[in-house]
Write a protein that binds this DNA or RNA. Structure first.
Lengths: 342, 342
DNA sequence: TTGAAAGCGGTACCAC
DNA sequence: GTGGTACCGCTTTCAA
């Protein structure tokens, strides 16, 4: 079996180029990498021509083997199809690409014990750095340190691991959201999210309430899914002590809550006001549009990439502020200027 | 300066393991790869122990250089944060991981001319295969063929490029959606999507209508974004000849359409019924929940991965059926069984 | 069953 | 300014 048409049997190597251009392999390297030695213009031209003719493309594996760098970053997330992580991942890919890095994405599926294997996968592929959106277990931490690869943790709330990390000020975000609701006159505001009283968002919610002299409304525990939010929403409706507003821990959960409310025939935001946290693109298109404490995903992504590429001595934890995006689910009227629609 | 004290100065290599275990490098290789030569049990045990103690991890770059395979797949999408591509990407990652492949993700940003550079990036990183969710230009096609890397196209509607491809039967999907709307008694059904009359979805919409003896309703051109859908939705409302239902080309656009309708104070689905196409997870949580022709993303992802990993001689084009997921936006009542809420 | 050694394709030092 | 060449770490043939 022979080759078809013009396609060379085998990818051209540096040696082929050198032969074709009548120079040494070293010069090819100097030309391609613009260094470390200078190359005469005429020589360079010959080499470039040879590269073009032969369709030569450097073998990244060989380069990696020699240099020790893959120019690849690894991103480990529970679920890359979750809108929040999808948005985060995209921002990270952009930031990485801008620095000449490619991004390897791995989903763990959310099970804490599947993190360590994922780290091992990334490590065996010699990524130059890892971004991990996860609360690492002891196991995982050990895996990271034994991998000896610069790592920054994403989505962290505290600097517990000794690893560099970035995260949003969820406490302040929740607090500002709840304050906004209080400003609308609500006296009983529920919470949907993590049942742990120490959860940052729950703390922010509670503190905002108590600071205003209000008693914390009901808590509906929910995992971070739309379905979880839906269930929590139904739970809130069946409460005796029904609240008039709710702070929801994430946009995804909020979309579930909204659905539960709509199904019950409530008029939103009049019957029940909602404020959430995340600022994902689709929060703008729920009905009513979500008022949400938006995370600075792009900034965090850029910082994380920057930090993992050029690790500094001090492993710092950077907390990013959220900004309240006011839309209609809180009870604010929509801009009249826009009402050209029918 | 470093965090943990236990990190060895230099990653252990196969040679270190061999030395520690008192065997030759070859035996280490035989042990790690379970072949191609057998290893005595006692020897294997010693090697394994050495690996454990030294924390040895094979260098993927060296292996790649020797073997010629990176066990990596490249995914090129316009926008990985788009829910549809996010879902698709996740499914692909799962399928790839199941076969021991890692996934490199690159965003092109949607500009046709940025595809070729992205392909070049993947090629230079020696991925074993490429998945491209894009209508490739001539340029891109040339780039793919010169890369000499197995490639399958995603999201295709026709087998034009001579490359293997998978896609959904958008025509049939649109048609079934519109038929469903017709079944609800609608006589004037609008279309939101690509303005090209040859667009598969638009054709499906038109043919369903004409087959039922109905005149095609108004067309509101829209790009594939929520914003585009929103604008199209407003446009539909300002039409003189107002339709009573609309088929929308994607879930994302549909969320925009829904928003426009809600803002106008319409009662959905009574005032305006909506059916869309995609079947993304969030379509279930819009209000009202979207009736949508769902694409078999997981199946397509599995097929694409399978095909790119083991390329066959025949470069075939596989069309997947969509399945209509009936929810409420079309006018169907919601299951009474569920109405335990409140 | 084990070992020696020849590459895989580049990089960059050291000579010229 | 250019060229020879010793690695990088691993796989696998061939010989023992």
């Amino acid at each position: 079996m022979t080759t078809v048409g013009d396609i060379p049997k085998r990818r051209a190597t540096r040696a082929d180029v050198a032969r074709y251009a009548g120079v040494s392999p070293a010069v090819v390297s100097y030309t391609v990498n613009a260094g470390p030695k200078p190359v005469a213009d005429a020589t360079r031209a010959r080499v470039l021509e040879a590269i073009r003719v032969l369709g030569y493309r450097p073998n990244a594996a060989a380069r990696t083997l020699k240099i020790g760098s893959t120019k690849m970053l690894g991103l480990i997330v529970p679920d890359s199809s979750n809108p929040f992580f999808a948005q985060y991942g995209h921002a990270i890919e952009d930031a990485a690409a801008a620095q000449g890095y490619a991004l390897l994405v791995v989903n763990t599926g959310g099970a804490p014990e599947s993190l360590a294997p994922s780290i091992r996968t990334m490590a065996s592929r010699q990524v130059d750095g890892m971004l991990i959106a996860f609360q690492p277990s002891m196991d995982a931490l050990a895996e990271i340190s034994s991998a000896g690869i610069p790592t920054v943790l994403l989505n962290q709330t505290t600097a517990v691991s000794g690893l560099p990390a970035v995260g949003s000020d969820l406490y302040a975000g929740a607090r500002s959201g709840v304050q906004h609701l209080i400003g609308h006159g609500h006296r009983s505001i529920a919470f949907v999210g993590d049942s742990d009283p120490l959860d940052e968002r729950q703390r922010g919610w509670r503190d905002a309430l108590t600071a205003a002299g209000l008693a914390p409304g009901p808590i509906a525990a929910s995992d971070f899914t739309r379905e979880g939010g839906y269930l929590a929403g139904r739970e809130l409706l069946s409460e005796n002590r029904r609240a008039s507003a709710v702070f929801v821990s994430s946009d995804m959960q909020a979309s579930g809550v909204l659905r539960a409310f709509h199904e019950a025939g409530l008029s939103l935001p009049d019957d029940f006001a909602v404020v959430s946290l995340d600022g994902s693109p689709e929060s703008e298109y729920s009905w009513p549009a979500l008022t949400t404490a938006s995370q600075s995903v792009v900034d965090m992504a850029a910082e994380a990439v920057r930090h993992v590429i050029t690790p500094t001595e001090q492993t710092r934890f950077t907390l990013y502020p959220t900004s309240l995006v006011v839309r209609q689910s809180c009870g604010c009227a929509w801009p009249e200027a826009e009402s050209g629609a029918r």
